[in-house]
Structure formats: structure tokens, C-alpha cells
Design a protein around this nucleic acid. Structure first.
Length: 556
RNA sequence: UGCCCGAUAGUAUAAUGGUAGUACGACUGUUUUUGGUGCAGUUUGUCUAGGUUCGAAUCCUGGUCGGGCAACCA
């Protein structure tokens, strides 16, 4: 373990705290999602950070659902969040809910009222907003700011008891209406919401706001390092204020820059729109930047953890290039995916000198990246095979190492063939390619002495199975849809999904294993989709292979 | 025009007053029964103007640029 890895700024802080014996060297972080949507790759960054950094310093991490807004939250989301975290490979110490602390928070609020540090305000939302002033002008007190402690206690009790309608009253902290930090201008602590909560049911009709719930939950759990994203920086003085006034365990908040990635959007609000307005089939659509979307698409947990490791942690705003994520999944799948052959856009190749009716069984290793190949599978071969249409050209350009009249290629795991001729239909479309094969060139026992530049994949016509193949491309046409003019949805890529109904696959793929990655040789990495059943197979393309020829041929 | 945060190759991220490095991308070459992989190499950078110092990406001051903050959301 001589590997020298430089520390990010949070690791430096925590390492410093541990070294100085702060909290007796104890490290406890938390991952605090609101259960109002599915987790996305940005959450994965936070998960890897919170769980990873705790592991590094022999600490633990709580999973805490920040469920203080009953109208947006649902147990359905709770379940998906837990599944996603487990799938990523992390275990939480305790599964907790902010709503578990509603009694305690209520008591905290009462404490502040008794100290004269909180008051019930009957103003409307608009009145409160107006009275807060602007960043350059101080706010002015509402008439309710000077209520007595006794009256505040009575009113807050009545709020809890359900005596008032939604919006009739709020509880506010009494801090500083002239603060240059807008968050300190008497922020709301509680609002009235006669709504059913997914855990507490109808027990409560007042709910704490984020600012009054989060830090208090951290403190109750004795969280040592409460890590959140940059936009909460202005909240930190308030976070500290509540803890100071309540004289409770001093959790500390630290902030890092959230993940942004090009050609996608990363806000739950926008992702929810894509789902609700049917631009995608659901939260787990393989085009979505959600963890469940990547899982369905064929990404592995390791590739996502590795990605999160590589992007680093800092406070600078960033937009990560999608190509880095692609690199991470290719790196992983190259080592683990089993090789198979599938023809997506078929054209028939007839081997004119191969006896009709003859069949051979060829052998192909599963994984050339591993010694021994992780075993092998049988591949039937016969006189007629499917090849990729793009692997034949009537008038091949220079450096085209595939088929054209007079050109030779190797059929992967099989023989070298030479193109003799081709057949066109009345529309001029090529329908068949005719080749002769070289019997002594069989893979593994090639005595022909011929070297060819190209090797192509194929599937025996007689033995081919069919499958639906879904090809995914980036969801948006522009790098940063949110920063463009107009609605971000105007920039959705109309070709983000291409469905191939009847691709030909080699017979072994009929028993493809769900969750396993396969490399369709020369075409990319694929995985079985959950839409598959006994009668029909559906594969998702996880990512293409790098394609040097595509670049070369573009040059003209 | 208030307060806060930030600024290092195309994109990220190191260098903690002492040689500006790494990864991805791009581009070359090489290997290859995948135009994949592997291997070797090339390319491009400290926002700006001052100051402190023997020495500044790093510390200080001013500016510029980017982002956040005035939800009964989190």
C-alpha cells in the first residue's frame, strides 16, 4: 500500500479532526435524501463521498430520509433509494427518518420560543416575503414579531393541535431582519400542512422546514461531518445558530460542488418532468441519468463508483464530460463482459464453395481479456450467414479492411473468405454477397499462410435467433440544456432511442443471463433488458465500442 | 448594486511558499483473428493588475469573470 493519493479538501478536514481527537476521533456522516424522486448520478457522487470517507476513517454512515414535506414524499421512493444505495455497494449504519424526530423537534422549537428566540407569525406568505426586504434593504418586523412568550407558546400548541388552516400561521426564528444573509432574516421553522405523511400518517399537521429539521437531525444522531452541496453555504450560519441556541451536539456542515454532466439534466424537478410528460418511459429509462437508469442500461456498480472516484471532490462548479463515464464502463466491461456475435443490420453472405447442408460447430472463448478465456461457447457455422451490411461496399475506399469484390476478411472464429460477387435487387440494393472460403484457414488450425487485415462478426442464417435491440444515444442535443434559451425539453435528442426489432444473434445468447454484460463483438456492450421474456429477447446497448474507423471514414 | 462561494490544459483534478503533475478527451505510432483492448508517444494550462518574498498557482490588495442567496421546497 505505497500508493500516494492526494487528499481532497474534505479528507484533509476530517483527517485533521481525527488527528486532533475531535469527537474522540469518531467519524459519522449521513446521506440524507428526500424521498420525493429517484436517485441520480449526482446522488451517487454524494453517496460515494459520504460512505467512502466514513469507511476511510473507520467511521459509519447513516441513511436518513429527510421527510419533512409530506405532500411530495412517498414510500415508493424510499424503497427505490434503498435499493440503489445497496446496488452501489454501500451499507448504512442506521436507517433513520427526520420524521422520527418530530416530537424532539417540537420540543426544540418550544425551547426557542421560551428563550424568546422564536415567534408565531400570522402574516401571509406574501406579507412575509415582502417584509424580509431585499438583499440591499433590511427587512421590517411584522406586527407579530413582538408577541409575548406566553402567547407564542399557546399559539404554537394550537397550531400543533390543528386549530388553524394551512398557511394561517407559521413559526419563525427571531434572529436579525437586517442581516446581509437573507437566510437569517427570521427564517420559517414550522408551517401548517394538513396532509397525510407517508410515515407519521395524520399525527401531525405542522411540519418543520429544512433549516430547522436538518441540523437538528444531524445533532440528534451526533453526526460529526454533515456534508452537503454548495447551495447550502448561506444556510450554514443558520445551521450553527440553531445548534448554538439549543446547546445541542455541534454537528458541522461542509459543502462541495455537486456533479453536473454534459448532454443531460440533473435536477429532480426536470427529471420528473421527463417522466411525467413521457419523454422517457420512467425513472429507470436507460437514457435517464438515474442510478436505476444506468443499472437497466447495463452500467455496473463498480464503474459508477470508479467514475465518482475519478471526478474528484472540490468546491468549483463543474460539468463533467459524459465521455469519462463511458470510459469507466468500457474499462469495467472490457474485463468482464463475455464476447458474443450479433448482426444488427443484416445482409446475407453465401459461401459458394461450402457444401449446402453441411454444418460445423466452432468454438469461441468467452473472454479474451482473462487467461483461459473464462470458458467457451459453441458457434454453429453453415453455408449462409448474416453479416453486417456496413461490412460490405460495392466500391470500397482505400483502407477499407472489409468486404468488396476481390477483398478478403476473416470471419471471426471461422474461415477466411474472399468476396467474388454480389447480387442487387431492382432498386439497386445489395441483397447478397457471394464469397468463397479457404478450407485450410479455419481458426485455430490455419495453415493457409494468408494474412488478412480485417475480421468481421457473423451469425449462421440457419441457427440465428432473433432479438430486439435498443440503441441509446445522448438524451439531449446540447451540452447544457438548462442554460439554453427556452424550455430545456426543446433540446431533447429525437434520436436518443433506436429500436431494432429483428436483429440476429448467435444461439448461445438465447440463454443470456440477466444483469450480465455482453460484448457484441465490434458493436458494443449490451445487457438483457427487463422487458425480455421466454418468447422474446430484448437487449439494451450500454455503450458502443470506440470506433476508429468511424473517425477515419469521416475524414473522407 | 448587498452578502457569500469559486477561478490551474478542451473537461476534471493535484501541487499545502521551492521542478506546474495525473486522468479523460484529441492526435501519432505499434500490437492485435474485435478498426476493440494493450503498449509507446505528442498536444494544450496557473483569469488579470499590483504587492510581500531569494522564490508565488499557493500569501495580501484591487479588478474581471462564473455561480449561489430574498420558496410556508430540500
Amino acid at each position: 500500500m505505497s500508493e500516494e493519493r492526494s487528499l481532497n479538501f474534505l479528507e484533509e478536514i476530517i483527517e485533521g479532526d481525527v488527528r486532533e481527537g475531535k469527537h474522540d476521533g469518531r467519524v459519522l456522516t449521513r446521506f440524507p435524501p428526500e424521498p420525493n424522486g429517484f436517485l441520480h448520478i449526482g446522488h451517487a457522487k454524494s453517496i460515494c463521498l459520504n460512505f467512502g470517507i466514513a469507511q476511510q476513517y473507520n467511521g459509519k454512515t447513516n441513511l436518513r430520509f429527510d421527510d419533512t414535506n409530506p405532500v411530495t414524499e412517498d414510500t415508493r421512493y424510499v424503497d427505490s433509494i434503498k435499493e440503489d444505495i445497496k446496488w452501489l455497494g454501500f451499507d448504512w449504519d442506521q436507517e433513520l427518518y427526520s420524521s422520527d424526530y418530530f416530537d424532539q423537534m417540537y420540543a426544540f422549537a418550544m425551547q426557542l420560543i421560551q428563550k424568546g428566540k422564536a415567534y408565531v407569525d400570522d402574516s401571509t406568505a406574501e406579507e412575509i416575503a415582502a417584509s424580509k426586504g431585499t438583499p440591499t434593504e433590511p427587512g421590517i418586523p411584522t406586527p407579530f414579531r413582538s408577541r409575548s412568550v406566553e402567547e407564542n407558546i399557546r399559539l404554537f400548541e394550537e397550531m400543533k393541535a390543528g386549530k388553524y388552516a394551512d398557511g394561517a400561521k407559521v413559526l419563525r426564528a427571531k434572529i436579525d431582519l437586517a442581516s446581509p444573509n437573507m437566510h437569517m432574516r427570521d427564517p420559517l421553522m414550522y408551517r401548517i400542512r394538513h396532509a397525510h405523511h407517508h410515515r407519521t400518517g395524520d399525527e401531525w399537521c405542522i411540519y418543520p422546514m429544512y433549516d430547522f429539521a436538518h441540523g437538528q437531525s444531524d445533532s440528534i444522531e451526533r453526526i460529526t461531518h454533515s456534508i452537503c452541496t454548495l447551495e447550502f453555504i448561506p444556510h450554514r450560519p443558520l445551521y450553527d445558530w440553531f445548534i448554538d441556541e439549543l446547546e445541542i451536539f455541534p454537528s458541522k456542515q461542509y459543502e462541495f460542488a455537486r456533479l453536473n454532466m454534459n448532454y443531460t439534466v440533473m435536477s429532480k424537478r426536470k427529471l420528473l418532468q421527463l417522466v411525467n410528460e413521457r419523454f422517457v418511459t420512467g425513472w429507470d429509462d436507460p437514457r435517464m441519468p438515474t442510478i436505476s437508469g444506468y443499472r437497466r442500461r447495463g452500467y455496473t456498480p463498480g464503474s459508477i463508483r470508479n467514475f465518482c472516484e475519478r471526478i474528484g471532490i472540490a468546491k468549483r462548479e463543474n460539468i463533467i464530460e459524459y465521455s469519462l463515464l463511458e470510459f469507466c464502463i468500457r474499462e469495467d466491461l472490457n474485463k468482464s463482459a463475455w464476447r458474443r456475435m450479433a448482426v444488427l443490420d443484416p445482409i446475407k453472405l453465401v459461401i459458394t464453395n461450402y457444401p449446402a447442408g453441411k454444418e460445423e460447430v466452432l468454438v469461441g472463448e468467452n473472454n479474451p481479456e482473462v487467461e483461459g478465456g473464462e470458458g467457451a461457447r459453441n458457434i454453429p457455422f453453415s453455408r449462409e450467414i448474416w453479416i453486417e451490411r456496413e461490412d460490405f461496399m460495392e466500391e470500397p475506399p482505400k483502407k477499407f479492411f472489409r468486404l468488396g469484390v476481390g477483398l478478403m476478411v476473416r470471419l471471426k472464429h471461422a474461415y477466411i473468405v474472399k468476396c467474388e460477387n454480389f447480387v442487387k435487387d431492382e432498386n439497386g440494393r445489395v441483397t447478397e454477397v457471394h464469397c468463397s472460403y479457404i478450407p485450410e484457414s479455419r481458426s485455430g488450425s490455419d495453415t493457409s499462410g494468408i494474412n488478412v487485415k480485417g475480421t468481421i462478426h457473423w451469425v449462421s442464417v440457419l441457427h440465428a435467433k432473433t432479438a430486439e435491440i435498443r440503441l441509446y444515444d445522448r438524451l439531449f442535443q446540447v451540452e447544457d440544456p438548462s442554460s439554453e434559451d427556452g424550455d430545456f425539453k426543446e433540446y431533447i435528442n429525437p434520436d436518443s432511442l433506436t429500436i431494432i426489432r429483428n436483429a440476429f444473434i448467435e444461439p448461445d445468447l438465447a440463454t443470456a443471463i440477466p444483469g450480465k454484460g455482453y460484448q457484441f463483438i465490434r458493436k458494443g456492450y449490451f445487457t438483457l433488458d427487463i422487458d425480455s421474456n421466454e418468447n422474446s429477447l430484448v437487449f439494451n446497448r450500454t455503450v458502443t465500442l470506440k470506433d476508429a474507423w468511424a473517425k477515419e471514414s469521416k475524414k473522407g
